Amino acid sequence: MPLDIFSLIGFVGTACIIGAYAYLTIKDEPNPYILHATNLTGAALLTISLLVHTNWPSLVLEGFWAAIAIFGLVKAMRARSAAK
């Protein structure tokens, strides 16, 4: 089966999530904006792919992944505001 555009979008999303995890592992003090924004982007791209090639457990996982990333971004913004 040839890869369609939605599968390619999903692969880019996968690369984002793997890249974010590698970044978290490699950096001693990772930037939370880079980490969570990359995870959110990956979850969004994978969701696009999963809406076409439906896999319900994976779609639910991406929903939680996105929610956690949004929580992390909000937490980072609040911390930055409190520091000012």
Rank of each mutant, 00 (worst) to 15 (best):
D4Q: 12
E29K: 15
S81W: 08
G10N: 04
A79G: 12
I18E: 03
I48D: 10
L51P: 04
A66P: 10
K75L: 00
A20C: 09
Y23D: 04
F64M: 10
L24Q: 14
V12S: 04
A79W: 02
G19N: 04
V52D: 13
T14K: 04
N31W: 05
L35S: 04
N39M: 12
T54H: 13
W65P: 04
V12H: 02
V74S: 07
T41E: 03
Y23I: 00
M1T: 12
A67H: 10
I5D: 13
I5C: 09
L40M: 10
V12E: 00
A22K: 12
I70L: 09
L50K: 05
L46G: 08
F64E: 06
T47E: 10
F64G: 14
P30Q: 07
A43M: 12
W65Y: 13
A83F: 01
F71H: 14
E62Y: 07
E29H: 15
L8C: 03
H53V: 00
S7V: 07
L8V: 03
I17P: 04
W56M: 04
R78Q: 08
F11Q: 11
N31F: 07
I17N: 14
A79F: 01
T14L: 15
F64P: 05
S7D: 15
A76I: 01
S49C: 09
L46N: 13
A66L: 08
K27A: 08
L35T: 05
V52P: 07
F6V: 00
T14W: 12
N31P: 03
G42T: 04
T14C: 11
A69E: 11
D4I: 01
F11P: 02
L3F: 03
L24G: 12
L3P: 02
L8T: 02
